[in-house]
Design a binder for these strands. Structure first.
Lengths: 340, 340
DNA sequence: AACGGTACCGGCAACGTTACCGGTTTTCCC
DNA sequence: GGGAAAACCGGTAACGTTGCCGGTACCGTT
C-alpha cells in the first residue's frame, strides 16, 4: 500500500532540492561528495528505484522492443531466445506477441505495441498476411523495425534471414546426387516468401541437373503435418509417383513420412525424403529424416543485433539484409549409398 | 521525424483548452456536442493516439502483465498461448521473459519487469530457484502475482497447476495394472515441486498396490533427454533391472526410449514406458509412448483468468489454488494386453 | 429583479523525472 | 585584495494526460 519512494521523498528528508538528488543519483557533476554520499545512502535505505514510466515519458524511449512472431513453435522459439539474449544484454526488455498466423491478430498486436510505445519492432510476418499497411505505419512514424525469418520483398526493411533458396537447392541437389529422379516438393502457402524461395532453390537445382520441372510434383499445402500427410498420399497415388520428396518444413516432412510408411514404402530405398529446419524430432523418428539446418539461434541474435545497430546509427539501414547460410544434415531418409 | 499529435495540438488548432479536449475525447459530459464533434473530427484527421506512457504515469497502471517462464518448450509455449489469449481479450499486453532455468536470470527478469511497472506477474519458476526473495518483493509491493505450472509451497500465491500427484499415480497404476512389477521412476531435480509431486503419486500408487518402494529405482536426473538416456542405461545395467519406467517428462521418456532400444529391449514386452506431458512427439516415435496429458492451454488460460480476477477483486486471493486433472493416454509403449 | 440551476469551459496541479539557467558561496591566482 | 573561475545548489519548465475547482453565460422561476 505504501507508495514507492521518489526523489521528492529523498529531497524532503535531506532538506535539499529534487534537482540535486537527481544529479547525485545520475551525473555526479555539480554535486558535493558529501551530499552525494548522503543521497546514495538514503537511496539504499529506502530502496529507491527510478520510475521508468516517468523517465520514458521524458526521454521518449522505453527500452522495450516489440517482437511479433506468427507462433512459438520450435524454430521461432529458438530464434526468440536468440533475440532475448542479445536484447537483455543491451538493456532492452522484449515484449513477445504471437499473431497465431492471423492477419487480424497481427494488426492488433502491432497497435498494442505501438500504444505501449516500444522503441522498435522485430518482426516475423504471419503466413496469412498479404498487405503490409500496419507495418508501414510503423515506418512512417520513424520507428526502427527489423524483420527476420519470414521476410518479404513487399516490406522493405533491414532484415535477417536464411538463404532459403540455397536451402532448397542443396536439399534437392542432394536428392539428385543420391540418384532420385522424380523429386516432388511439398511447399507452403503460395504467398509465403520462405516457401517460394525454397521452391526457387528446388527449381534451380533441377535446372542445373537438366531435369524438366513437372507441375504435378509441386504441391502447395498448409504449413502443417496433417495437410502434408494428405498431400503426400495424393502424390503417392499418382500413376508415375515421385521417388523423392522435399518438404519445406520438418513438420511437413513428418506428415509425409507417415503417409509413406502407411503406404508401405521404404525410405530411402523406395523413396527419399528431406525436410527443413532440422528440428530435434527428425532424429527421433524412424527413419531419421535428413533436414536443412538453419541456425535459428544465430538468426535471432543477428536480428536483435541488427535492430540495436539500427537504433544507434540513425542513418537509413533500410537496404541492409543479412543472409545466413544453411547446412544440410544427411540422415537415413535420403542416404541411399551408405558408402558415399 | 514529425512528433505524434497531442491533445495540446488539438486544443491549439481549435482554440480551446486541453481540458475540454480531454473531456471531449473521454467523458462526453460537460462538453458542447458541437465542440465534441470538432474535436473528434480533428482526432480522426491527425490520427491522434493517446500517449499511454503519460496515462500510465497518471493512473499508475500500464495494462501490461509480466510473464516469467523458465523456457519456451512445447508445454510452456502452449501455456503462454493460453495466457496470451485471455490477456489480450481483457485488454492486457503480455511481456514474456525467459529465465532459461537460471536463478540469476529470473531475478534479472523480475527486476526488469518491475522497472517496467507491469501491473502484475504470472510466473512459472525456474528449476534452479531455491529461494524466493525476488518474488516476495513483488508481493511486498502489493503487486498482483499468480504462479502456474511450476508451483512451490515456499511461494504462497494464487496458483494454477496440474494435479501432478494424480498424474504420477495414474501413470504408475496403469503400469501396475499391465502387470509390471519393478517400476522405476526418472524424476527431475530434487527441489522441483512438480517432480516431487509426480513422485508422490508414484509412491502412493505403489503403496496402494502393496509394493515396497525400492530406492534403487528412484533416479533423479536433469530435466533433459541426454541425462535421461544415461540414467536409463544405468537402470538397465542393474542386476535386477526394472521392468517399467515412468518418466516425469516426455523429453526424458524419449531419452529412456533411446536407451531401451539401444539395449535391444522391446516395449512393451520387455519393459514398459510412460511419459508425461503428452507432447506431439510421443506419437511420432516407435513405439508410440504412453503419456500423461495436462491440458496446457487450459492451464495457461486459467492462470490468466485468475490473474485478472486477482486484479479486480482487491481482496486477498493468496489461498486460491486451481488444480486441473490430468488424463492418461495409453499407447504402444505400455499397453501389454492389447485386448484389454 | 433576484436567485438558483445548468451547460460549458479554462486554469491549475499533479504523476516522477531531468535539462537548463541563474544564483550564491568558496577557492584560487596574480 | 580584487576579480574570475569553480563548486555547488535550487527553481522552473517540460514530457502528455486528467481531476478538480472555479468561473461565466444563459435560462427559468418566483
Amino acid at each position: 500500500m505504501n507508495k514507492p519512494p521518489t526523489i521528492k521523498d529523498i529531497a524532503r528528508q535531506l532538506n535539499i532540492s529534487v534537482s540535486t538528488v537527481s544529479r547525485a543519483i545520475r551525473n555526479a557533476t555539480d554535486v558535493n561528495p558529501e551530499t552525494k554520499k548522503a543521497v546514495l545512502a538514503l537511496v539504499e535505505e529506502l530502496n529507491y528505484q527510478p520510475n521508468q514510466l516517468a523517465l520514458s515519458l521524458r526521454n521518449k524511449q522505453t527500452h522495450t522492443i516489440g517482437v511479433i512472431v506468427p507462433n512459438l513453435d520450435y524454430v521461432l522459439s529458438v530464434m526468440v531466445r536468440g533475440i532475448d539474449e542479445v536484447a537483455l544484454e543491451a538493456g532492452y526488455t522484449v515484449m513477445i506477441c504471437q499473431s497465431n498466423e492471423s492477419f487480424g491478430r497481427e494488426i492488433l498486436n502491432t497497435r498494442r505495441l505501438l500504444d505501449s510505445l516500444v522503441d522498435g519492432f522485430i518482426i516475423s510476418v504471419s503466413s496469412e498476411t498479404k498487405t503490409f499497411d500496419h507495418f508501414k505505419k510503423i515506418q512512417e512514424k520513424n520507428i526502427p523495425m527489423v524483420v527476420f525469418d519470414r521476410v518479404t520483398p513487399a516490406l522493405v526493411a533491414p532484415s535477417v534471414r536464411l538463404d532459403n533458396e540455397m536451402g532448397g537447392f542443396i536439399a534437392t541437389e542432394h536428392l539428385l546426387e543420391q540418384g532420385y529422379k522424380r523429386i516432388a516438393i511439398l511447399a507452403g502457402p503460395k504467398n509465403l516468401g520462405i516457401s517460394n524461395s525454397r521452391m526457387d532453390g528446388y527449381l534451380s537445382a533441377l535446372k542445373k541437373h537438366k531435369i524438366k520441372k513437372d507441375d504435378d510434383l509441386i504441391v502447395h499445402c498448409d504449413f502443417n503435418q496433417d495437410y502434408a500427410f494428405f498431400a503426400t498420399q495424393e502424390l503417392l497415388a499418382m500413376k508415375k509417383r515421385p521417388d523423392a520428396i522435399f518438404t519445406i518444413s520438418d513438420r511437413m516432412a513428418i506428415g509425409a513420412m507417415l503417409a509413406i510408411k502407411k503406404k508401405g514404402l521404404r525410405m530411402p530405398q523406395d523413396i527419399g525424403l528431406v525436410g527443413f529446419n532440422n528440428e530435434p524430432v527428425v532424429c527421433l523418428v524412424t527413419p531419421q529424416i535428413s533436414s536443412v539446418d538453419m541456425s535459428a539461434f544465430e538468426i535471432g541474435k543477428a536480428a536483435a543485433k541488427l535492430f540495436i545497430e539500427t537504433m544507434h546509427h540513425h542513418e537509413d539501414m533500410t537496404g541492409v539484409e543479412q543472409i545466413l547460410k544453411p547446412k544440410l544434415f544427411i540422415r537415413e531418409s535420403s542416404k541411399k549409398n551408405l558408402n558415399k
